[in-house]
Amino acid sequence: MLLQAAREKGNLAKIRRATVGGDTGQGGSMTGLRYESPPTLDAAVALLNNAKGLARVLAGGTDVIVQMETDLIEPELLVDIKKIPGLRTIVAENGGFRIGATVSGMEMVEHAALCATWPGVIDGVKLIGSIQVKGRATIAGNLCNGSPAADSVPPLAAAGAVARVIGPQGTREIAVAKIPAGPGKTHLGKGEIVESIFLPARAKHSGDAYERFTPRTEMDIAVVGVAVNLTLDTSGVVISARVVLGAVAPTILEPADCAKAIVGTRLEEAALEQLAAAASAACRPIDDKRGTREFRVTVAGVLARRVAQKAYDRARHIA
């Protein structure tokens, strides 16, 4: 029928979603969105700092584009930082790794040395969406999106990762753990951009792990997430530990009682029991479409035990 015949190329007035040119009355775009891809970080900072309306950094885009598509945000400016040289590299530095702001999740997953050193961080990265999503998504974006359920943030915080932030006042280093400020919010100021995230050198006899609970095996948002990073002495006793919980409060939590429960132990049953209790006690979750309050509290304890054991086994090279 006509509809099929008319599909011949060259014989078409194509459907133009959002391409209206002179047809829009006020002239130009209906949405007023501006896209810039500055060549330097300084230029990017200036663009963000001078923006009048909502301005967003565009790195992987896997959150920003979805939020635009579902009409949650209507930015005036997108600053694409992917054309800025030097941001798309994983560089060994002081025994650790500096991960540029535009490095994709898949690039991290494919980096053998990074995976071997910080397997718990990679546990988290692997859980960010599908392979397709990880082909674009970045950990800097995962952090700056401000979701309490972001999968890479608890293991980064537990690892003691530090973000290098460039802004109108210059450069500052800030612990990843200090950046989240609540759902959709961060402690970054106007015009500030995370330039890179630094994962420090790993201590001897240490290991990290991250797990989350979701009803599906993949393609889901954490109902609870737990990251553990711990260091042992030569006899297998935990000498230091960081335990970070995700999706159980407006921001990630690092309850001191969780670390205290396992430091000085070999993760004996009593220690794990205490860890689980401390994790559950620290939760301040909400009831929502992804899980009930009660369920989150229980599962936080369950996961804390499991993840601590996994990190411990990694530290002892069992797993």
Binding site: R16, T19, D23, T24, S29, M30, T31
Partner: peptide, 9 residues
């Protein structure tokens, strides 16, 4: 409308 953007506006 002639475009999705115009329709949405």
């Amino acid at each position: 409308a002639t475009s999705e953007a115009a329709a949405k506006a």
